[in-house]
Amino acid sequence: MTIDKQLILDAFHFRHACKQYDPSKKISDEDFRFILETGRLSPSSFGFEPWKFFVIENRRLRELIHDNAWGAKDKIMDCSHFVIVTVRQPDTLLADGDYVQHIMRDVHHIPDEARKLRQNFYRTFTEQDFALTANPTAFYHWACRQSYIAMANMLTAAAMIGIDSTPIEGFPLEKMNDLLVEQGLYDPKEYKLSVMIAFGYRVNDPREKTRQAFEDVVEWVK
């Protein structure tokens, strides 16, 4: 299957960090499920999918985010859909942990012998290659990098069907995470906040997209 390359580039030119959303326009259930599905199908290191997406429809929770996340303040009450992306806590991503075993056994359907080999390979990666197990903060950041792959795919998928979006890091991380935990959104032993995303329809057209020249960011090594 192929998709016209210009259509893909057009979507990248269309996409921008939307500053103001039209509260009268809502994304259809079908379209938003499509966007979420591109996040679900996204690649992750070892295929362990260390993320969970929370679609925030509750107005009281949106108001809480509005009052505490400065990057979401001018968007969250007007955008059609708002997503909180969390990642799994380091303790749940250990090679011997239940979650990793569940993914390999029940999702990937890896036979027992091969699963042991993959488990040992992953253990070497987390303990030695990237030295993640000795540094929970580094382990958290590694999981966040996986979640950003999913987010990027959702942003692009949205743009390809004419829907605007805004990736949001504008919040005090620990405070915002604690507030969401206090609201019962997730168990802090399992998940931690990574990033937020607003989706909807723009009010105004953005200024022309600006990027560095191709030659300034690409170097061919022969």
Rank of each mutant, 00 (worst) to 15 (best):
E190V: 14
P188S: 11
R211M: 13
P188I: 05
Y186M: 01
L193G: 02
K189M: 13
D216H: 07
T210Q: 14
E190A: 13
G200L: 01
L173V: 05
D187F: 07
L173Q: 09
R207Y: 15
T210D: 05
G200R: 03
M176S: 14
G170N: 13
I197R: 04
A213I: 00
L185W: 00
L179Q: 08
W220S: 04
Y186A: 08
D178H: 03
K222F: 15
A198T: 03
G170D: 13
F171C: 03
P206H: 02
V218L: 13
E182I: 00
I168A: 06
N177F: 00
P167D: 06
P172I: 07
F199Y: 02
V195W: 10
D178G: 04
N177E: 04
V217F: 13
Y201P: 01
W220D: 03
V195Y: 09
R211K: 12
F214V: 15
D187H: 06
K222P: 11
V217A: 11
Y186H: 05
E182H: 14
L179A: 02
D178P: 01
A213V: 00
Y201C: 05
R202T: 04
R202I: 04
E208L: 03
E169R: 04
M176Y: 10
T210G: 08
T166V: 13
Y201K: 04
V203L: 14
L193W: 15
K189P: 08
I197E: 12
T166I: 09
A198S: 10
V181K: 02
V221R: 05
N177A: 01
R207H: 10
P172S: 11
R211S: 11
L185V: 05
E169Q: 10
R202W: 11
K175V: 11
F214D: 05
M196E: 04
V217D: 14
N177Y: 02
V181R: 03
A213Q: 09
Q183P: 03
D216L: 11
E208H: 09
T166R: 11
E208D: 10
N177R: 01
V195T: 10
E174G: 02
V217C: 11
P206C: 06
K175A: 07
R211I: 15
K189Y: 13
K175H: 13
E182R: 13
K209G: 10
E208G: 00
D216M: 07
K192N: 12
P206I: 02
E174F: 11
E182V: 01
